[in-house]
Simulated assay, not measured.
Amino acid sequence: MSRLLILSAGTILALASVAFAAPAMQPLKISKECSQYTGDTPSFCTITESNLAAIPSGTKILYYGPVTGSPYFGSSTAVIAVANGDSALGYCVTYDTASPPFGTCAFHAGSGTLAGFQAIVKVTVDDKQIWHWDGGYLLGAAK
């Protein structure tokens, strides 16, 4: 009897884990330049390359703080503002005095063609001062 109970419990747990499995994320690679970033609220960077058609080159990433002007780190609400009015909302934290600088951004909401946008990316900067986001995304209805 206990063997049947253990087997039944194992089957239920296995089915539950399948039912709650997260969908597979797609690769996300974005490069941006920040020559017009001032530290004011909002400040922005401009995307120069993106592997996601819904976020094309020329798209602005607006940073609203609370920490946008520190020489040591950034901690900010971030909005990906596509020219046609579509957008995505997230949060970024960067360690700007690290050698090399690095950080993380996570996005949890979007509108228009970015409805349901969720992403998490590693942030790095190269020696030409081009910032790179490398990670994964989901696009579609958020659950």
Rank of each mutant, 00 (worst) to 15 (best):
A141N: 03
G69R: 14
L7R: 14
G112W: 10
D127F: 10
Y95L: 02
Y72M: 12
C92I: 14
Y95E: 09
A88F: 02
A115E: 01
A14L: 00
K29L: 08
T77F: 15
T41P: 03
T46M: 08
P71R: 04
S76G: 02
F73P: 10
G39N: 05
I47S: 13
L4N: 06
G112V: 07
L138F: 08
G140P: 00
I80M: 04
L4K: 10
F73L: 08
T68V: 05
A115Q: 04
S50E: 13
L89E: 11
C34H: 12
G140T: 08
I61V: 15
G74S: 12
Q26F: 13
T94F: 12
T41Q: 07
S76V: 12
D86P: 00
L139W: 08
A81Q: 14
G90W: 01
T94L: 01
L52Y: 07
F107N: 11
A83K: 13
S75K: 14
I61E: 15
H108S: 09
A16I: 06
G74N: 13
K60G: 02
S2G: 13
G136A: 02
N84M: 10
K32P: 09
I120C: 04
T48S: 09
A98N: 05
S99Q: 07
M25D: 08
I6D: 03
V67C: 08
Q118P: 00
D40T: 13
A16M: 05
L139F: 06
A19G: 07
F117Y: 15
P56Q: 12
K60W: 10
P100I: 11
S2L: 14
L139Q: 00
V67N: 08
V79T: 10
S57L: 00
P27G: 11
G110W: 09
V67M: 09
L13N: 09
P71K: 04
G110M: 02
L7A: 14
F20R: 15
M1L: 09
S8I: 06
D134W: 06
S43C: 10
V125N: 11
K143A: 00
T124H: 11
A22H: 10
L15I: 07
G112M: 11
G140W: 11
F117Q: 10
Y37S: 02
I80T: 09
L89F: 10
A141R: 05
V18Q: 14
Q129N: 11
S8N: 05
Y63C: 01
N84S: 13
S87R: 09
L139C: 01
A78K: 01
Y95I: 06
V125R: 15
I6S: 04
A119C: 00
I120K: 13
I55L: 12
G136Q: 04
N84P: 01
V67D: 06
Y91F: 15
F107V: 12
S8F: 08
W133K: 07
F107H: 13
I12R: 14
I12P: 12
S99N: 04
G110T: 05
K128C: 05
I12Y: 14
I55K: 12
V79W: 07
Q36T: 02
T68I: 07
L62T: 02
T46H: 12
T104Q: 08
S2R: 12
M1N: 11
S35F: 14
S111V: 03
A142L: 03
L138K: 11
D126P: 04
A16T: 12
W131D: 05
K29P: 00
S31R: 15
T104S: 06
D96W: 08
Y37A: 04
H132V: 02
G10C: 15
L52W: 12
